[in-house]
């Protein structure tokens, strides 16, 4: 009896490590950021249009990094979402079973390739290719980074959306076919609306994944924080900034050191909000079919 209790206690402890991890993340981000904001006002952080903590003339406006992050994210999801959802619809409504069984694990490869490899693709293959017909394009830019990131994210969208479509009762599909609807009409008028919450979850996760992606943008998008929507010029994302600072020799406790935590907490807030929205939609959606 006693042994059983001890084992249960140990298991519970292991599970609780995950809570400690969250507390650790929050503690680390908050404590360093708070000490950052003692030196830099939140107002400056949120409104200054320049981010130059590593220069002599220091500015601490997060907006250029946020803009860079949103720009690459937007490019990535405009690739991943339409393609991913089309794949999901094709696989669940059209594809022969055999084809689906072969293609699904292949698509997973897209997400399994290390991001450093995608970064290489973006810089060494995609950018020169795009430069050949977009003359003014810089060697570092958000367009190649975003497109390549989008390709990487495709399976996140397609697999979750396909799961959602498959969870819709078959009877609805049959009813629609029985009334003379084509597969396309059935897909868009019955199946997609019925699976909408799951599909929305996959879209949110795609955003969250793109916002947090680091190596592709660190390699291919540049290191120049810039408040721009131009996808052809170098920019810098929050994640790339953290990597840039980590690569250099920045003394612990210095203001430069603290900037990566201030940037980190901004990034964390974005993904935390998106993840929670998707978690609650998913939970609601589960109840709907139970």
């Amino acid at each position: 009896m006693n042994k059983e209790k001890i084992i249960e206690g140990l298991l519970k402890l292991s599970a609780s490590i995950t809570i400690l991890t969250t507390i650790g993340i929050l503690y680390v981000l908050l404590s360093e950021s708070i000490s950052f904001f003692k030196e830099v006002s939140i107002l400056e952080f949120l409104t200054d249009k320049e981010w130059t903590p590593l220069f002599v003339n220091k500015h601490f406006g997060i907006l250029p990094l946020v803009m860079g992050t949103l720009l690459t994210t937007f490019i990535a999801v405009s690739v991943a979402i339409p393609i991913g959802i089309t794949i999901a619809i094709y696989l669940s409504e059209y594809a022969p079973n055999k084809f689906r069984k072969i293609v699904k694990p292949l698509l997973e490869i897209l997400a399994a390739v290390p991001t450093i490899v995608y970064g290489f693709f973006a810089l060494v293959v995609v950018t020169p290719f795009l430069q050949s017909f977009i003359p003014g394009m810089s060697g570092f830019n958000s367009l190649s980074a975003g497109i390549v990131m989008g390709i990487m994210i495709i399976p996140y969208v397609s697999s979750l959306s396909e799961d959602a479509l498959r969870a819709v009762p078959k009877a609805l599909r049959n009813a629609s076919f029985g009334m003379g609807a084509t597969r396309l009409q059935t897909a868009f008028k019955v199946m997609v609306p019925a699976a909408s919450s799951g599909i929305i979850v996959s879209i949110i996760l795609a955003f969250s994944r793109a916002i947090g992606e680091t190596m592709i943008v660190a390699i291919a998008a540049g290191q120049q924080p810039r408040l721009t929507l131009n996808p052809l010029v170098p920019i810098e994302t929050i994640t790339a900034y953290i990597v840039q600072v980590s690569l250099g020799d920045v003394a612990h406790g210095s203001l430069e050191y603290k900037t990566i935590f201030a940037a980190g907490i901004t990034l964390f807030l974005f993904t935390f909000i998106l993840n929670n929205i998707s978690y609650y939609i998913r939970k609601k959606f589960k109840e709907q079919y139970e």
């Binding site: 009877a171 049959n174 009813a175 629609s176 003379g180 609807a181 009409q185 008028k189 019955v190 609306p193």
Partner: peptide, 28 residues
Amino acid sequence: RKNIGMVFQKPNPFPKSIFENVAYGLRI
């Protein structure tokens, strides 16, 4: 299939309004 309707074993209305369910075949 527009000429031959089918009613299934279990009721399988679409998760739409009553009106839209009946209008579905007309709309497509």
